[in-house]
Nucleic acid binder design. Structure first.
Ligand code: ZN
Length: 473
DNA sequence: CGTGCCGGGAA
DNA sequence: TTCCCGGCACG
């Protein structure tokens, strides 16, 4: 059949703390192998498309930014933002993937969606869960505003249907990067401060409050409250930079999109904007936290990243080392920069552009990079050879940071799976020879990744002792 | 041996 | 369908 939606399961292993705010949990909760487009929109929400009409559908409910609700995917540039004003507005616009000066991409990937479509309550829940999970990212386990019961760790929640990937175009002109992030109020600027948003950063901080609560009331099931008390105040002291890890390159850019473009063009020899990615591109770059303060405006050579946004181009940074290299499978990578010394947990998530994949999107790896956080990547693969590659725009990048020490007491999950990204190396074609029948994939499967003790984290396939569908070869 | 997972098979 | 497992072929 065709209905083998993503598994949005709240890992029951999170025990009493239910979906914890850590990134890992997102992974666990977002096991998805959906065949329908799934991508992070500029708001950091996961979106997918309706099989039939190709409309987009939010996996999550509308956001509430600073108490003001952000409309759903706005058709016209000014739709949603109408609720906002000032810098907030700008930020939101960007968050929405729109641009203040530049009109949104012709055929924006964002197509107005009829509010609620045929979404089974179940599906809805999943979405909500996904959303909640994402949201919870920024919530401290101890400060979780919602009652654990809200997220009954029910494994049986999996739904939505998959469908033909819809295509949309979104020229990846690194402008309107819809990166977003959030973190808690804390404003202290520490050297190891989380990466400040890229281009737009004005109103990108918010902290979720109450995830979802029920299924019946889908509309308000998920509410993300961004109650950042001090929206515009935060002056970023650090900036996230992306460093190319390719052999003797080390180029540093200010956006993951730019970096990927760089890699794509320079190292992979691909056509510039023609993201003809077939879902198997290897981007090797890592994230850096750069202290912006120290960096005046004397920028050096860099690739233009955000037309509209005034993001200081990147420039080689000493060694603000952060997370180990991360392999960005197809397009999205989450790296974890440094930890933060905020009293509360601080989670930072940012995405560059809307990320869109056409086919099964699945978290392919979880890696605990630093004590302060971990990263993971999302990968997808073409369902069929001719499936339209809808992957447009630049990939996103999520970063999760959690304070070390503070909420360090992770809910459950004994030892998290650690997948160390392999180091870049010329894309050699390891194509030895195949003699036997069972090539035995090399990729670590759920079993090995999560371990027997965390069986409930495995993908269903693995649990059924079937071919793993999360870590496909 | 542990792993991945096919091919049953039960609920 | 969902779920489980015997058992075998891999490393
Ligand atoms: Zn698996």
């Amino acid at each position: 059949m065709g209905t083998q939606g993503p598994e949005l399961i709240s890992s029951s292993t999170t025990g009493g703390n239910l979906l914890c705010p850590f990134i890992e949990d997102i992974l666990l909760s977002l096991r998805t192998t959906s065949k329908s487009p799934l991508y992070f929109n500029g708001q950091g929400l996961l979106e997918t498309a309706e099989p039939a009409n190709g409309r987009l559908r939010h996996l999550t409910d509308p956001l509430v930014l600073n108490g003001r609700k952000v409309e759903e995917r706005p058709g016209p540039p000014a739709a949603a933002p109408s609720l906002l004003e000032g810098s907030d507005k700008e930020a939101v616009l960007r968050l929405l993937g729109l641009d203040l000066e530049q009109s949104p991409p012709p055929q924006s990937a964002y197509i107005p969606v009829p509010r609620q479509r045929k979404l089974s309550g179940k599906a809805r829940i999943d979405e909500v869960m996904a959303a909640a999970v994402l949201t919870s990212l920024s919530t401290s386990p101890l400060v979780l505003a919602n009652p654990p019961s809200a997220f009954s760790p029910e494994p049986g929640c999996e739904a939505w249907k998959d469908g033909p990937a819809m295509s949309s175009s979104y020229s990846s002109s690194s402008n309107n990067s819809g990166d977003w992030s959030w973190d808690l109020p804390s404003d202290r600027s520490t050297p190891s401060t989380p990466s400040p948003p890229l281009p737009s950063d004005a109103a990108k901080s918010f902290l979720p409050a109450a995830p979802l609560d029920d299924s019946t009331e889908e509309t308000e099931a998920t509410h993300f409250l961004f109650g950042d008390p001090i929206p515009r105040k935060r002056k970023n002291s650090t900036k996230v930079m992306f460093k190319c890890l390719w052999k003797s390159c080390g180029k540093v850019l200010s956006s993951s999109s730019g970096m990927q473009k760089h890699i794509r063009i320079v190292h992979l020899g691909r056509k510039a904007d023609l993201d003809q990615s077939d879902g198997e591109e290897d981007f090797y770059y890592t994230e850096l936290d750069v202290n912006v303060d120290s960096l005046t405006d004397g920028l050096s050579s860099l690739t233009p990243v955000s037309p509209t946004s005034s993001v200081p181009p990147a420039f080689p940074v000493p060694e603000v080392q952060t997370a180990p290299p991360l392999l960005v499978k197809p397009e999205v990578s989450l790296v974890s920069p440094l930890s933060h010394s905020a009293p509360t947990n601080l989670c930072h998530v940012q995405t560059d552009h809307a990320y869109q994949a056409t086919a099964p999107v699945s978290i392919s790896a979880v890696s605990k990079t630093l004590p302060g956080g971990l990263g993971f990547s999302i990968s997808w693969q073409q369902p069929s050879p001719q499936a339209p590659v809808v992957f447009k725009g630049s990939p996103g990048c999520l970063t999760a940071i959690r304070p070390v020490g503070v909420g360090d007491k992770r809910p459950q999950i004994p030892h998290l799976p650690v997948i160390k990204p392999h180091v870049p190396a010329a894309p050699a074609a390891p194509k030895p020879a195949s003699g036997t029948r069972k090539p035995r994939g090399e990729a670590k499967k759920c079993r090995k990744v999560y371990g027997m003790e965390n069986r409930d984290m495995w993908c269903t396939a693995c649990r059924w002792k079937k071919a793993c569908q999360r870590f496909v070869d």
